[in-house]
Simulated scan of single mutants.
Amino acid sequence: MPKLSVIVPCYFNEDNIPVTTRELVANEANFPPEVTFEYVFVNDGSGDDTLGALLRAQALYPGRIHIVDLTGNVGSYNAIVAGMAHATGDCLAVITADLQDPPELMVQMYAHWQQGYKLVIGNRQDREDIGLAVAMAKLFHWLMKNLALRNIPDGGFDFVFFDRQVATEVLRLHERNSNVFYLMVWLGFAYVNIPYIRRKREIGKSRWTLSKKIKLLVDSLLAFSFVPIRAISVLGLGLGFVALLYGLYVIALKVARPDEPAGWTTLMVVMLFVSAFQMVALGVIGEYVWRGLDAARKRPLYVVRDVYS
């Protein structure tokens, strides 16, 4: 009897929990009768009554819901890792607590898993959302696909269904400042992707702020791509070549017109440009060095306050 563990990271989802749990439990009827379920909700340091809502849902559906309560907010990806560590299923799925991803898609995902696929991805073919957030999301995934992992599906994804072996490998890596979904693809298992249209959020307000999105972009690029470091080398060589040409020009000008004063404006522009490049280069190198330090300290990705089973 295969067991499916559904991991749901929660952050300020007090109002979502009753609807989400009801939809997830109702979706069980679409699966073959031999499948058993557990739902691992991870409270990622929510400042509202998310934990209380989860405990009430647990009382309504005894034996199905497990709650992992973290001591503080560590980010949704680390919360997912915590859920993976506490899940016991033969296969696992990750879905958002706001139900923007359709739970019924997990039935198709399960069918592909039975066919032998270790990883099944629900990729966003389109979104019901509009505005700047959608444009930023598309730009983010375009950068990742073209600069880091070329084998990821178009449109981005954070709705996945995967085998216990994939979860074991992710937990074994202990990756920090990374992207757990891209890490699953990086492992190299053959996967199948199912396109869908992501729903508009109906309940509550997203806490996925601009600063968090920028951090995710930087973390993902640095974790899976050498492009930033290689770009520094290429730009450095290019600037060196330009500097050589400019130096030859200055020498030739001095020889041809020894009494003409040098251009102060040109000199300042060159100095400011080179100095700006050096600061950017140091910043990129510093990002890599900081991540190396963070990994060397081996601090835990999360701290569990309590588990309610």
Score class of each variant (00 low, 15 high):
1 M>K: 13
2 P>A: 13
3 K>L: 10
4 L>T: 12
4 L>S: 01
8 V>W: 03
8 V>A: 06
8 V>K: 02
14 E>W: 01
16 N>H: 12
19 V>M: 13
21 T>V: 15
26 A>F: 03
27 N>V: 14
29 A>P: 01
29 A>N: 08
31 F>N: 05
32 P>M: 08
32 P>D: 10
35 V>P: 00
37 F>T: 10
41 F>I: 08
42 V>H: 03
44 D>V: 01
47 G>A: 09
48 D>N: 01
49 D>W: 04
50 T>M: 03
52 G>I: 09
57 A>E: 06
60 L>E: 12
61 Y>Q: 04
66 H>M: 08
70 L>E: 05
71 T>M: 11
73 N>G: 02
76 S>T: 14
79 A>M: 05
81 V>K: 12
82 A>M: 08
91 C>Q: 08
93 A>T: 12
97 A>P: 02
99 L>M: 14
105 L>A: 10
113 W>Y: 11
115 Q>F: 01
116 G>L: 03
126 D>Y: 05
134 V>K: 08
138 K>Y: 06
140 F>D: 15
147 L>Y: 13
149 L>D: 02
153 P>T: 03
165 Q>L: 07
170 V>Q: 10
176 R>V: 12
176 R>K: 14
178 S>T: 15
178 S>W: 02
181 F>V: 03
183 L>A: 11
189 F>I: 05
193 N>G: 05
195 P>C: 06
196 Y>A: 05
198 R>T: 13
200 K>C: 06
203 I>A: 09
204 G>K: 04
207 R>I: 04
215 K>N: 15
219 D>F: 07
226 F>P: 11
229 I>F: 14
229 I>C: 11
230 R>F: 09
234 V>C: 11
235 L>E: 07
240 G>E: 07
242 V>T: 07
246 Y>C: 07
252 A>Y: 15
256 A>V: 14
257 R>P: 00
258 P>I: 02
261 P>G: 04
264 W>Y: 11
265 T>E: 07
265 T>D: 05
268 M>Q: 08
269 V>N: 08
269 V>A: 11
270 V>L: 15
282 L>G: 11
287 E>V: 14
289 V>C: 10
295 A>E: 11
300 P>I: 01
306 D>K: 13
308 Y>I: 15
